[in-house]
């Protein structure tokens, strides 16, 4: 563990802090020229999880709230885009603002009453709400019932119709960069520091004049918006969405990525997400590990919480 900390400290040094992400970005940009479609798809999936994890990170990592239904946030974005495009013939890019709007509205509906209460109520309410979203999507005709929405049109960007996986690879790469930028700016802003204060000691934050309920609601809204946008892009990349892709396992996976990666630490969260996306691909054919991986993650979660409660790659505390 000491060695691990040392390695992370090295990665956190001044030169590495900009050098490593830049090198990584360069490598990611070059990769599509060398990899086949399958490998690109796996990497796309990793970036997709990274986006979700970055979104959830604002809620869990920055603010210390527990959201057990993050899949519902991206389901809402995906269905908003899907319905507007399928039933109303909207252009994809125009559905994005709507997706953001719907995410904000639902976040307020769920967050405003519960965030005033004990914070662990949020966990169960988000869980219940995720079930409501999933069941509603399964029962309504407009959401395509159990089979979901299919054949959602692929959008074009600057005249290029985005049909190949390599196109989406680059779209998601840009999204990851944007999300990282947003997360980073958030963390170092006045707002971000208020969230960190709430996470570390809510009572003290309140005593120092931080309007905790309002800030928690904002954090929750930002997380929901990031999830919704990711969902919208997910809908047009996959071209089909169904209630099955938004169950509790999905929410648990995203939460695990954030927590095991290191709550609040951006590279840690991305590494966690990549691990969760790539791990099943590697162990798909190993019979026992393939089936038992959630068991393994559960054990890992308990051990990490007891021995390294800040996650594998925690945020460095500044004195």
């Amino acid at each position: 563990m000491k060695l691990l900390d040392k390695a992370f400290r090295l990665l956190g040094s001044k030169g590495a802090r900009y050098g490593v992400p830049a090198a990584l970005l360069l490598a990611m940009t070059a990769l599509p020229f060398f990899l086949d479609d399958y490998a690109l798809h796996v990497l796309w999936n990793a970036m997709f999880y990274a986006l979700l994890a970055l979104g959830l990170n604002v809620i869990v990592g920055y603010c210390g709230l527990c959201d057990l239904g993050y899949a519902a946030k991206f389901a809402i974005g995906a269905y908003t885009t899907g319905i507007l495009m399928k039933s109303f013939g909207w252009n994809f890019w125009l559905t994005l603002p709507m997706s953001i709007l719907v995410a904000v509205i639902t976040a307020v509906i769920i967050g405003a009453p519960t965030l005033k209460l004990r914070s662990d109520y949020l966990a169960i309410v988000t869980l219940g709400f995720a079930e409501i979203v999933r069941i509603t999507a399964r029962n309504l005709p407009i959401t395509g019932s159990a089979s979901g929405l299919n054949a959602i049109a692929r959008p074009s960007l600057f005249g290029l119709r985005l049909t190949k996986i390599s196109h989406w690879y680059y779209v998601f790469l840009v999204l990851v960069v944007i999300f990282v930028f947003i997360s980073n700016r958030l963390r170092h802003s006045r707002f971000g520091r208020a969230l960190a204060y709430i996470r570390e000691d809510e009572d003290a934050a309140q005593a120092m004049g931080v309007d905790t309920t309002r800030y928690k609601l904002y954090a929750y809204m930002i997380g929901a918006v990031l999830g919704g946008v990711t969902g919208s892009f997910f809908a047009v990349t996959m071209t089909s969405i169904s209630p099955g892709s938004f169950d509790f396992t999905q929410s648990a996976n995203i939460l695990l990525a954030v927590i095991l990666g290191g709550m609040g630490k951006i590279p840690g969260v991305i590494a966690g997400a990549a691990f969760f996306a790539i791990f099943p691909e590697i162990f798909r054919d190993v019979p026992i590990v393939g089936n038992m991986r959630m068991l393994f993650f559960g054990l890992l979660l308990i051990v990490v919480m007891i021995t390294r409660p800040q996650g594998f790659w925690p945020e460095r505390k500044r004195g």
Partner: peptide, 12 residues
């Protein structure tokens, strides 16, 4: 979160 871990272990 630990409780979620315990749940995952028993469930799986």
């Amino acid at each position: 979160i630990t409780a979620i871990g315990v749940s995952l272990v028993i469930y799986n």
